[in-house]
Amino acid sequence: MIPTGSQPSQAQAGSLAGVGPATGSQPSQAQAGSLAGVGPASATRITPGNALRPEDIALEVQRGDVKPSENVGEYALRLGDDALILAQRLGHWISRAPELEEDVALGNIALDQLGHARSFLTYAGAAWGKTEDELAYFRREPEFRSAHLFEQPNGDFAVTIVRQFIVSYYQFELYRRLTDSSDATLAAIAAKAVKEVDYHRDHSAQWVLRLALGTDESRGRLLAGLRLLWPYVGELFEDDALTARLGDAAVAPSSLRADFDRLTDEVLVEAEIDVPHVPSALGGGRRGQHSEHMGYILAEMQVLAREYPGASW
């Protein structure tokens, strides 16, 4: 048994998936049914609690209550693709983690990310009349908008933890500010996501400390992971024409950098580590230019859906 960080949001992850123990306040059956957009014919009673789910967004879109502009859609695509590609990477750890607690924890984080991806992609799709699944399974590589960090291979556990460390501190600052977005749907998705990502920060920071101060081997592996992935940090904070056009609806990526640096540095100081001085990678993910890894991720993710186009699952 190893001492690990507090478990991330099990209840939220569970309710997102529509499985797992029912927790928190339970709306009436009728309310649950109408929220989920499903009738009593479903074999599964939906107990969504108060969380915003992708199905709720899809329903609002169907009713015509919300309709993002193409600019907002494009922005939501970026955030959704980041989360989707990371979930795809993290899902690989389930049944392969160093300890059962980490099978559960990394699985939870993957599930949270997938939930965020589903919400952002459902909303993004509304700009072009597409569903979350059409976007995830039937776009080509250059149409994906994720930054390069998210598609980097899992590597060993230290590499995965470094990627989580960077991502969770970045996403926390981003979602925290996005809750003030002038776009109500983006703000609502961010409000749910930020609570979950806060746990992801805790998980990654605790592991950074354990690996840095544990054994010589773990420290060496962590330092190697930091050198490997720090070049991908810069891309996360690049402003471009889209973020400028969106104004109050989005968050200017560059505005997150100072807090990201300060907060990650606090952890790294405690871990007795200097921020690696490494040149930035080229990036280009926001423009659809990806690394060699992306094609394999998509091939695996999309293979079955593309074998049966138009099928329902």
């Binding site: 899902g91 699944d133 699952w313």
Partner: peptide, 17 residues
């Protein structure tokens, strides 16, 4: 990694977890 919809992927992840 190959679940044919994102909802099925989420459910399957939660189940294995």
């Amino acid at each position: 990694s190959r679940a044919p919809s994102l909802k099925r992927k989420a459910i399957l992840m939660a189940k294995v977890q």
